[in-house]
C-alpha cells in the first residue's frame, strides 16, 4: 500500500537500524586481528581519529541545526561508526581473498582511506534520516552531500575512491541509497574532483610522464 512520506522515512530509518543491530561501535575481534597483522599497528590512530571526528561532527551538526540537537548529531555519528567498522571488515576480507595477503598496513594507516570510509558511512546515515525531521531548515544548513566532505576535510577524489567498494561490501544498502551514492560519484567526477587542490591533477601529470611527453603542445583552444 502507498506510504505517506513520514511512514516511508520511518521505514527507511528502521531498515538501517535493523541492519546495524548486531554492529558494534568498536572494532570487532576480526578487525583487531587485521590491525595487529599490520607492519605498523593502526589501532590507536583509528580510535583517536574516530574520537576526534566525533567531536567535530557533533559541533558542526549543532551549529547547523541548533545547539539543542547536538546529542542527536552525535547519535547519528555513532550509527555511522558502526557501519564503518562493518564495511571495513567486509572490505578487508574481500581484499584478503583477492590478494592473498593479511597485512594491510599501508591502507589502514592511510587517514584519507579511513576518513573517506567514515564519511561515506555518515553520508548514508544522513541521507537515511534526510531533512524531514528539521522543517524550516535553510539552504545554508543543508547537511546533505557534500557537507560531510567539508566537515571532515575529505578530498572529493578520495571519497570517490571508496564508494564502489563500499557498495560491494554492504549488501544491506537499499536501491535508493545506492542511487544516492552513485549521484555523489557523478557530482564528484563532474565538478568536485576538479577543484584546484584536487590530487587528480598530479595523478594526470604522473600518468602523462610515465607514458612519455607528447611531441606537440595542445593548442590553447583545447
Amino acid at each position: 500500500p502507498p506510504q505517506t512520506p513520514v511512514r516511508a522515512a520511518m521505514n527507511t530509518i528502521q531498515h538501517l537500524m535493523n541492519s546495524l543491530a548486531a554492529a558494534s561501535d568498536k572494532p570487532s575481534s576480526t578487525l583487531i586481528s587485521y590491525f595487529n597483522n599490520c607492519t605498523s599497528n593502526p589501532t590507536n590512530d583509528i580510535l583517536e581519529r574516530v574520537n576526534h571526528l566525533g567531536k567535530i561532527f557533533k559541533e558542526r551538526f549543532a551549529e547547523a541545526v541548533g545547539q539543542g540537537c547536538a546529542e542527536i548529531g552525535f547519535e547519528r555519528f555513532k550509527v555511522g561508526v558502526r557501519l564503518t567498522y562493518r564495511v571495513m571488515e567486509s572490505m578487508l576480507k574481500s581484499e584478503e581473498q583477492r590478494l592473498s595477503v593479511q597485512n594491510f598496513s599501508k591502507l589502514l594507516n592511510d587517514s584519507a582511506f579511513h576518513k573517506s570510509l567514515l564519511g561515506c558511512s555518515i553520508e548514508v546515515v544522513m541521507a537515511t534520516y534526510g531533512r524531514s525531521a528539521f522543517d524550516g531548515i535553510s539552504r545554508e544548513t543543508d547537511l546533505s552531500f557534500p557537507w560531510i566532505l567539508e566537515v571532515f576535510k575529505i578530498k572529493p577524489y578520495d571519497f570517490y575512491k571508496v564508494i564502489e567498494s563500499f557498495i560491494k561490501a554492504e549488501p544491506s544498502l537499499t536501491r535508493e541509497m545506492i542511487k544516492h551514492l552513485e549521484s555523489c560519484e557523478h557530482r564528484i567526477m563532474e565538478t568536485l574532483a576538479w577543484q584546484s587542490d584536487s590530487p587528480i591533477f598530479e595523478l594526470i601529470r604522473q600518468s602523462r610522464d610515465r607514458e612519455g611527453q607528447v611531441d606537440q603542445p595542445e593548442p590553447t583552444s583545447c
Partner: peptide
C-alpha cells in the same frame, strides 16, 4: 543494485585505489 555501474576492472580493488599494491 543491478543498475549501478561497477567500474573497477578485474584485479582492481580498494588497495590499488589507495596506492597500496
Amino acid at each position: 543494485c543491478n543498475d549501478y555501474h561497477f567500474g573497477l576492472e578485474e584485479g582492481e580493488g580498494i588497495s590499488e585505489l589507495f596506492d597500496c599494491d
